[in-house]
Design a protein around this nucleic acid. Structure first.
Length: 834
RNA sequence: GCCCGGGUGGCGGAAUGGCAGACGCUGAGGACUUAAAAUCCUCCGGGGAUUUUUCCUCAUGUGGGUUCGACUCCCACCCCGGGCACCA
């Protein structure tokens, strides 16, 4: 008998699929579409088993849906712009394009080796001009709508690289990742932004549309990221400097304003310099200020930093109480959030408490809990910040109100009296997209001495990357030092002008790529809206939890912008999201830098693609992390061999048998029992695939069925070829989404000339699946004391009667009275005795 | 600190209020073989009793609770993993 040879089987069927164009799909209004998508990879290094698992999950879904009659679109592409390509190019003195394309070729070779059912005609690569020109086109639309703008902002700047660093590139508490001896500076430079904040409310509200389809935690993370706060802005007049505008503070707890004992400004608040001018503490203040301003913008540093600040020597007036409050500067107040100024209420806010305690500022209680001891500002050890309870005290006319009532009333009063305004603010910031890099989409803008900022006209798109940049990693950005790129003519006046030399953040590339798959070769538009109407939204998106915020939020933002310029009709691009677990080795995620990767191609060479696929699906449920185990993969390999031998042994007899028909009434007990197991397995596997995505238990069920068939050997003694055919065909079809090559081969061995790819998912036969007899446990007071074989559908009284006579149960009933009986038909009997 | 996950044999995991440990791995024993590999068969949570057969008992992070019945639901706590974080 032939041995299972995955190498030749897999090559054979991949060729057949390709020749028959099995996975190429076009819009067909007569069929229900299904869009399944795995997050596109960044082609770097080798494709490892961590990537592979992601695609294996998507491929099972694609193949199951295809067998179920859906018109499935399942595309693949490359997130091809990015810094690693540029760094590799600098290091190896090559071009980023060469490095990237070599990786793409390698990735594609590996994906093809695994037989994933992609429609390769739809392949895209984001670094190609035919793709990135549409990034530029979208940018120009946003510029027209005021959604793209330039602004100075604080960034991490490495003076040696002469470029902006992402927060992730600042290491060891403030050093450049490439120049580990160089301290990163905080600089303010002009950058391009996209106005994501214009959609704050929609991005938040539309999360409701995603409930049920997206994991709750992803929705929660997005909600927190957007960070909506309802509160009020209150103006505090500066008492001791004439002609200075009042300072505005944002608060969600205006009810505690009578407890405000200081006003605290962010170090870079525009008022600080003016307050210090002529102040008695000016020189000390400026010294501390310089120190505070230098502190890093990195999240971790901010979190661990101690609260620090200084008194400006100036005072403000509390508009409600008329009281005098000292104005301080504090490092924990952020210019980027709210108004950059807060009122410090130490009695009712933990951060304010810590700050005021440290600097000896008074603590004044204005909300007392309704139960428990009254709080005293002089003795309290922590802030009382619960706003759901308590009553106002020491708050003039508002005494006795609940915080909730006070927030409403005081907000309204502040508005009436003109020193405040109720407002909702968001944590979400606009999206800074400028990068001082080469390997990205050039921003299509020209600066002219006469006409100022001039957008590149649509007809001049794409603005191509210059082919031969000087990539050194030092000095100014590569595009800025490529003069043939920089120097151009103004589209308006024709005079000499300069091009923008920043490129776009690569998150832009991945914000809309899934639309391009629907119309990948369109040269006059990013896509034809009509095609989107058919294929969108994405029915199932699959990827890592790492992208829970940025990629998915930007994609949602992009969708809304496209909707508002009339390109698409839906609010949300992705209906369902699945976040799969990582593949770990030695307890950490596989990554090239950790040196713990298992290459997918080598894996396929060793065991075959089907074994690799089966293993990653079997070893853990798809949402959980999976620890790589070489022993377990051999188990998957053994199982596939077992199946292959089984079908091989019987294929000749089956092929000779008349096609499939037998009289159900003529089945013998062994045939019935085998068919029952097969159809029961199918019933459960179908539900595992469709409703639960429990691929691991689906595989376990198919293994059980295989064991059962082996247990019934030799089949030729009692099982007719027609029945054998039915059982082995079901087995083959159930495996098909997971091990498609092997299944095709078995299908052919079973005598089918047409490929398995033409087969539908089978339907189980309930008559065969039904049990005649079941074994149920019998419990006495909830403890299992025996088991009974009963006919399916037996009546309670009959079962109780049998139970009472049973030799293992009767002793437990001896001399006792049955006070209650619980009978779950065909499941269990529980007798409660006293 | 806040928000999510999660905690079941030697290991990965199964069990959607109803027989805890399916399925696989590892390990042990056996068959086949000159031998090995492969394959096939048997056993494999702890303790105790009976030592053929079986029975009892403990056990799903800990402690309570609801229930005839809890890995599953509720409350409190412990531990592990992840995310966010001076967000006013």
């Amino acid at each position: 008998m032939a041995e299972y040879n995955p190498q030749s089987i897999e090559a054979k069927w991949q060729k057949r699929w390709e020749d028959a164009r099995v996975f190429e799909t076009d819009a067909d209004p007569a069929k229900t579409k299904y869009y399944v998508l795995e997050m596109l990879p960044y082609p770097s290094g080798t494709l490892h088993m961590g990537h592979m698992r992601n695609y294996a999950i998507g491929d099972v879904v694609a193949r199951v849906k295809r067998m179920r009659g859906f018109n499935v679109i399942h595309p693949m592409g490359w997130d091809a712009f990015g810094l690693p390509a540029e760094n590799a190019a600098i290091k190896n003195k090559t071009h980023p394009r060469d490095w990237t394309n070599a990786n793409i070729a390698e990735f594609q070779r590996t994906l093809r080796r695994f037989g994933f059912s992609y429609d390769w005609r739809r392949e895209i690569s984001t670094c190609e001009p035919e793709y990135y020109r549409w990034n530029q086109w979208f940018f120009l639309r946003m510029l027209e709508k005021g959604l793209a703008y330039r602004k100075k902002s604080r960034v991490n700047w490495c003076p040696k690289c002469c470029t902006v660093l992402a927060n992730e590139q600042v290491i060891n508490g403030g050093y450049c990742w490439r120049h580990e001896d160089t301290l990163v500076e905080v600089r303010e430079i002009e950058q391009w932004f996209l106005k994501t904040t214009a959609y704050s409310d929609q991005l938040l509200d539309d999360l409701k549309q995603l409930e049920g389809g997206w994991p709750d935690r992803v929705i929660t993370m997005q909600r927190n990221w957007i960070g909506k706060s309802q509160g009020a802005k209150v103006k505090f007049a500066v008492a001791d400097v004439h002609g200075l505008d009042p300072i505005e503070a944002f608060t969600t707890r205006i009810d505690t304003i009578y407890g405000a004992t200081a006003l605290i400004l962010a170090p870079n608040h525009p008022h600080v310099a003016k307050l210090l001018e002529g102040s008695p503490v000016r020189s000390e203040g400026e010294e501390v200020l310089a120190k505070l301003k230098k502190s890093s913008v990195k999240a971790e540093d901010i979190a661990t930093a101690e609260k620090e600040g200084f008194f400006t020597g100036r005072h403000a007036t509390n508009p409600f109480s008329g009281g005098r409050m000292p104005i301080w500067v504090g490092n924990f107040v952020l210019m980027e959030y709210g108004t950059g100024a807060i009122m410090a209420v130490p009695a009712h806010d933990e951060r304010d408490f810590e700050f005021c305690k440290k600097y000896g500022l008074p603590i004044r209680v204005v909300v007392q809990a309704e139960d428990g001891k009254p709080l005293d500002g002089a003795t309290m050890m922590e802030a009382f910040s619960e706003h759901q309870q308590g009553r106002l005290v020491n708050s003039g006319p508002y005494n006795g109100l609940s915080p909730e009532e006070a927030i409403a009333k005081m907000g309204a009063d502040a508005e009436t009296k003109g020193f405040g305004k109720r407002e909702t603010i968001f944590r979400l910031r606009d999206w800074g997209i400028s990068r001082q890099r080469y390997w990205g989409t050039p921003i299509p803008v020209i600066y002219c001495a006469k006409d100022g900022l001039v957008p590149v006209p649509d007809k001049d798109l794409p603005v191509l990357l210059p082919p031969n940049p000087k990539l050194t990693g030092e000095g100014e950005s590569p595009l800025a030092s490529t003069l043939e790129f920089v120097n151009t003519t103004c589209p308006k006046c024709g005079g000499p002008a300069r091009r923008e030399t920043d490129t776009m953040d690569t998150f832009i590339d991945s914000s809309w790529y899934f639309y391009r798959y629907c119309d990948p070769h369109n040269s006059t538009a990013p896509f034809e809206p009509k095609k989107i109407v058919y294929w969108f939204p994405i029915d199932q998106y699959i990827g890592g939890i790492t992208h829970a915020i940025l990629h998915l939020l930007y994609s949602r933002f992009w969708c809304k912008v496209m909707r508002d310029i009339g390109l698409v009709k839906h609010d949300e691009p992705i209906k369902r999201l699945f976040t799969q677990g990582m593949v770990l080795k030695g307890g950490t995620a596989m990554s090239k830098s950790k040196g713990n990767v298992v290459g997918a191609y080598e894996m396929a060479d060793k065991f075959g693609a089907d074994t690799g696929r089966l293993y990653t699906l079997f070893a853990a449920p798809p949402e959980k992390d999976l620890e790589w185990s070489e022993e377990s993969i051999e188990g998957a390999w053994r199982f596939l061999n077992r199946v292959f031998r089984l079908v091989g042994k019987h294929s000749e007899a089956i092929r000779g048998a008349s096609n499939g028909k037998y009289d159900a009434a003529s089945l013998n007990d062994k045939e019935k029992s085998l068919l029952r197991k097969a159809h029961q397995t199918l019933r459960r596997v179908t539900s595992d695939f469709e409703t639960r995505w429990h691929f691991n238990s689906a595989i376990a069920l198919v293994m059980e069925l295989t064991n059962e068939v082996y247990g019934a050997e030799p089949l030729e003694k009692s099982i007719r070829p027609e029945v054998r055919r039915e059982v082995l065909e079901l087995l083959t079809l159930m495996l098909a989404p997971m091990t498609p090559h092997l299944s095709e081969e078995l299908w052919e061995m079973l005598g089918h000339a047409d490929g398995l790819w033409t087969s539908a998912w089978p339907t189980h036969n309930e008559d065969f699946a039904r049990d005649d007899e079941v074994e149920i446990p019998v419990q006495i007071n909830g403890k299992v004391r025996g088991r009974l074989k009963i006919a399916v559908g037996a009546k309670e009284d009959a079962v109780v009667e049998i139970a009472q006579k049973d030799s293992s149960i009767a002793p437990h009933l001896n001399g006792k009275r049955v006070v209650k009986r619980i009978y779950v038909p065909d499941k269990l009997l529980n007798l409660v005795v006293a």
